[in-house]
Amino acid sequence: MQTQHDLSGLVIDWDMTPEDAVTLYLEWGNNSWHAQHKPVTSKNDFSTYFVVNTWTGEPKLSLVRRNSEDCVELASFEIPEDLAKDFMAEVGFNKGVYAPTGAIKQWLQNKYFN
């Protein structure tokens, strides 16, 4: 059963990846002022972005908010079966935490942000 999500008012960083988030929020000072994402300057800096977790063998899409102290899951989403299969093939059926593919981002934008 799909849960209803009220995502109005959220500013989503569509370009944030799990790797970028670790660099920004857990390895302060490890990125340049000239990079796409500006360095964190306080605990009040945060990003809201999507990740796909495959540790259970099935891809789970989550909206997370991260700062230098915490990462909170704001919502989870069931990925359509065709997109889930394509995603798992694209990541080689490996377990991990990944950025969503372009197809998953497009699906999210069409379904929740139009």
Rank of each mutant, 00 (worst) to 15 (best):
E78V: 13
N94C: 03
A99F: 02
L63Y: 10
E81H: 12
F93N: 08
A75H: 10
F93W: 10
A84I: 12
A35H: 03
W55M: 11
I79Y: 11
N114R: 15
W55Q: 10
M1T: 10
D45W: 00
G9V: 07
N30M: 02
E58Q: 15
L83T: 04
A103Y: 06
T17I: 03
T54G: 03
N53I: 12
F50V: 06
A89F: 11
D45F: 03
L83Q: 08
D15A: 11
W55F: 14
S8K: 13
T56L: 12
L26A: 08
V52D: 01
Q109D: 05
F93A: 00
F113G: 00
W107D: 01
Q109E: 09
G102T: 02
H34Q: 09
A103I: 02
Y98R: 07
K43V: 09
D13R: 14
E19N: 06
T48H: 10
Q36G: 03
G92D: 00
N67Y: 05
K105W: 03
Q4H: 13
T56N: 09
A75W: 05
I12L: 12
H34E: 02
V97I: 13
P18E: 04
A84Q: 08
L10Y: 15
L83G: 04
I104S: 09
K38T: 04
V52C: 06
V11I: 14
L26V: 06
E90V: 00
V64C: 05
D20L: 14
T41I: 08
N110R: 14
M16A: 11
V52M: 04
A99K: 14
Q109V: 10
E58V: 15
T17C: 05
Y25N: 04
W14Q: 08
Y112A: 09
G102D: 07
S32E: 04
D82Y: 04
V97E: 02
Q109C: 02
G57Q: 06
D82E: 10
D20T: 05
S32C: 00
K85P: 04
A84K: 13
D86H: 12
S68F: 09
Y112I: 11
D86M: 11
M88G: 05
P100A: 02
Q106F: 12
I104T: 04
W28I: 05
N94I: 00
N114V: 13
S8P: 03
S42P: 07
T48N: 14
A35C: 01
F46S: 14
V51T: 09
S47N: 12
K95D: 08
M1P: 13
D82Q: 09
A21I: 01
A103T: 07
L61D: 07
I104D: 00
G92N: 07
V52H: 01
D6Q: 08
N110I: 01
V72Y: 11
R65N: 12
D20S: 00
L24W: 06
S62M: 15
K43L: 08
W107N: 02
V64L: 06
N67T: 06
W33S: 01
V40E: 02
E81S: 11
H34K: 10
G96W: 04
F87V: 06
L63V: 09
E81W: 11
E81K: 15
S8E: 01
A21D: 07
T48C: 14
E73N: 11
V52Q: 05
C71Y: 01
K111T: 15
F93I: 02
E19Y: 03
W33Q: 03
V51F: 04
H37D: 08
Y49W: 14
W14S: 06
H34C: 04
L74D: 00
L26G: 02
